[in-house]
Simulated assay, not measured.
Amino acid sequence: MDKYHQLIKFIRNAYSTPEAFIPLHEPRFSGNEKAYVADAIDSTFVSSVGEYVNRFEQMMCDITGAKYAIATVNGTSALHVALQLAGVEKGDEVITQALSFIATANAINYTGARPVFLDVDRHTMGLSPVTLELWLKKNVELKEVKAGSSQSNTQSQPFNKITGRRIAAIVPMHTFGHPVELDDIIEIANRYNIPVVEDAAESLGSYYKNEHTGTRGILGAFSFNGNKTVTCGGGGAIVTNDEKLARIAKHITTTAKVPHPYEYTHDMVGYNYRMPNLNAALACAQLENLKDFVINKRNWANKLEQFCQNHELDFIKEPGNTKSNYWLNAICLKNRDERDKVLKLLNKEGVMCRPIWTLLYKMPMYADCFRDEQTNAQWLEDRIVNIPSSVI
C-alpha cells in the first residue's frame, strides 16, 4: 500500500468512517444551537434586530480582544465595509495577494478600487513583507495631498508611479488560519502611510504573537460561512479598536437609517449588511464551542503532521510566533502532476480534498490588474492539497 492509500486509511480511522464519504470541512452542532435558534424564533425577532446580534458582537470582542465588533451578513460584506471605512475610494489601488479566495479581490472591486497582487511567503502562504517592501520601493512615491478644507493642511500619500493611482490599503489574508508576518507588514505600511485591513475570514481562533488575528490592522474582517471553524450558515464580522470607525460601520451596515420611532430617514449611502438575529443565535452557540473546536483541530493537525513525517509527506505547519486554528489542513506535494494524481485518488475514494485556489489574476475580471512575478504563489498553487479538517 503506497503512502496515499495509507493516508486515506489514516483519515478514515480518525473519523471512524470506514466507508462513507468524508467531507473536507463540515460544521459541528453540539451545543446550544437548536435552543438558541428556537428562542430567536419564539421572540419573533428574526431579522437584524434582536438580543443575539448584540450578544454575538460582545462575544467577538471577548474572543478577539477588539474593543468593537459589528455583525454582518457574510465575510465579504465585512471586508467591503472595512475597506470603505479605511478610506478606499473609486480609482484607488489596494495591495493584496493573488493566492486567496475570490472574495478578497471582489470586496476591493466593490469599492471601485483595483487590486494589486503581490507574492506570498511559502511558510505562511500569505502576503510577503519582503516582496511588499521591494515593490513599494520600486513602484510607489509619496506625494503631498490636500487634506480637509484648508489649503495649508496636506498629508503625504502613496501613489503608484506607473498607474498614477493612490495606494489606499494593504489587505493580507491569513491563509487556512495561518497568520502572516503582521509586524513586518504593518511596519512597512506605516512608513508609507497605508492602512492595513486584515482579511481574517479563515482565522477565528488564530493568534500572532499572542494577539488575535484581525486586531493588528485598523480593521479586520471575519467569515462565518458554512465551512468555517465556527458557522452560522452565513455571517461575518468587522472588528476594530477605533470607536468612530465602529460607529460608522454599524450605521452603514444598517442601511444608514437615522434612529427614529417610525420615520425612515437615511443620511448616507448604506448597505443592508446587518446579520439577522436568527443567524446570530446560531453563531452565539457556535462561539461558545470555539475554544474546544480549536483544541480539537490542533490535535488533529498534530496527528496529521506526525503521519506525514513518518511517510515522507510535507505537512503545512503553523508559522513561528503564531498559534493557528488549522482551519484547513494542507500537504505540499512535489509538483502539479503529483498534486493532480492525489486529488483524483482521494476524491475517487470518497475522501474529499481540493487544490488551493486558482491565483486571482488568472480570473478574467482581474487579468489586467497590476501584479509581480508571483513565484511563490505559483509554486504553492502547483503543490498544495487540502485534506479533511472537520472537528473529530
Rank of each mutant, 00 (worst) to 15 (best):
M275A: 07
P364A: 14
K291C: 14
Y273W: 07
R274K: 11
A285E: 00
L359H: 00
P319R: 05
D314T: 11
A280I: 03
Y326P: 00
L304K: 09
A301E: 01
Q378F: 06
I356C: 15
A367Q: 13
N310I: 06
C353R: 01
V269C: 12
A285W: 00
E243H: 10
E305M: 13
G350Y: 09
K323P: 01
Q309W: 05
L328M: 14
K344R: 13
D267T: 06
V258C: 08
Q378K: 15
H311A: 05
T255Q: 14
E288A: 06
I331F: 09
V269E: 10
K244S: 11
K344M: 07
D267K: 13
K303L: 04
I295S: 12
M268G: 10
I252W: 02
C369D: 10
K250R: 14
D382C: 07
C369N: 12
A249P: 03
T254P: 03
N325Q: 05
D368G: 11
P364M: 04
P319H: 03
M363L: 15
C308P: 02
D368A: 12
D368P: 05
Y326M: 03
E381N: 00
T254L: 13
E373I: 08
C353E: 01
E338P: 03
F370A: 07
T265Y: 13
I295G: 07
A301Y: 00
M363S: 10
L313T: 01
E243V: 07
E373N: 15
R339S: 07
N335I: 08
K244Q: 08
E338V: 13
L313K: 10
E288W: 07
N302I: 04
T253H: 05
D242L: 04
N272P: 02
L333V: 10
N325C: 12
N335F: 11
K317N: 14
R336C: 08
L346S: 03
D267V: 06
N289K: 10
A377V: 03
